[in-house]
C-alpha cells in the first residue's frame, strides 16, 4: 500500500447512505372505517362510549378511558369550538402548507373531545380559546375517505364558549344549550 493509500485509510468514515424503503398496506380499523365512510358522504360522525356516554371523534376503536369499544354512531355539527391552538411558523419539509398557519384543537358540537385541524380565513392574532368556528368542505365531487374533505375551519359570528363548557355543547350548539 502506498503512503497515500495509508493516509486515506486513516480518514474516518463519518457516514454512509442506506435508504430504507418499506411498503405497507395500511388499514384504518373497523371503527375508523365507519367514520371514514360517513366522511365520504360529507358527514362528520362521532361514536359514543356505552360506558361513560362520551362521544369520540375521530373514533379509534375504543373509549380510551373505559377500554371498551365505541358503538353508537352520532352525527356531529359542522360548528366547533376552539379548545386551544398554535400558530406554526416553522417550515416542515414535505408539508405543502406555507407557514404561518394555525393548528387548532377543535371540539365539534355534539362531541366531547377535540381533534386537530387547520383554522384559516381569519386574522391569526385574533384567534382565541372559546372561539366559535365552522367547517369549510371541499366540493362534494372531491370527497374521499379523508379528513381533508374539510379544507379548514373558519371563524363564526357567535358568542364565545366559556372554558368550562368547551367539549360539552350538544349537537345543536348554543341553541341546544339550555
Amino acid at each position: 500500500m502506498s503512503e497515500d493509500n495509508n493516509a486515506q485509510a486513516r480518514e474516518p468514515v463519518t457516514g454512509m447512505d442506506a435508504p430504507i424503503y418499506l411498503q405497507y398496506q395500511f388499514t384504518a380499523g373497523r371503527a375508523p372505517s365507519r367514520f371514514l365512510h360517513a366522511l365520504k358522504q360529507g358527514r362528520l360522525t362521532g361514536q359514543r362510549c356505552p360506558g361513560c356516554s362520551q362521544v369520540y371523534i375521530p373514533p379509534r376503536g375504543s373509549c380510551p378511558a373505559c377500554g371498551i369499544a365505541t358503538d353508537e354512531e352520532v352525527t356531529l355539527s359542522n360548528k366547533a369550538t376552539v379548545q386551544s391552538f398554535t400558530i406554526v411558523y416553522i417550515p416542515i419539509p414535505g408539508n405543502p402548507i406555507k407557514p404561518p398557519y394555525i393548528v387548532a384543537n377543535l371540539v365539534p358540537d355534539g362531541a366531547n373531545i377535540s381533534f386537530i385541524h387547520l383554522l384559516s380565513d381569519c386574522v391569526n392574532e385574533e384567534v382565541h380559546i372559546g372561539q366559535r368556528v365552522e367547517a369549510v368542505w371541499k366540493p362534494a365531487q372531491e370527497w374521499d375517505y379523508k379528513m381533508d374533505n374539510i379544507l379548514y375551519y373558519r371563524p363564526l359570528e357567535e358568542p364565545d364558549v366559556p372554558v368550562e363548557l368547551i367539549g360539552r355543547l350538544p349537537v345543536e350548539g348554543w341553541e341546544g344549550q339550555a
Partner: peptide, 14 residues
C-alpha cells in the same frame, strides 16, 4: 385481521 386495528385486536383478548 382485515379491517381491525391494533386496539380492536387487543380488546377481546383483554
Amino acid at each position: 385481521a382485515g379491517a381491525a386495528n391494533e386496539v380492536e385486536l387487543i380488546m377481546p383478548e383483554l
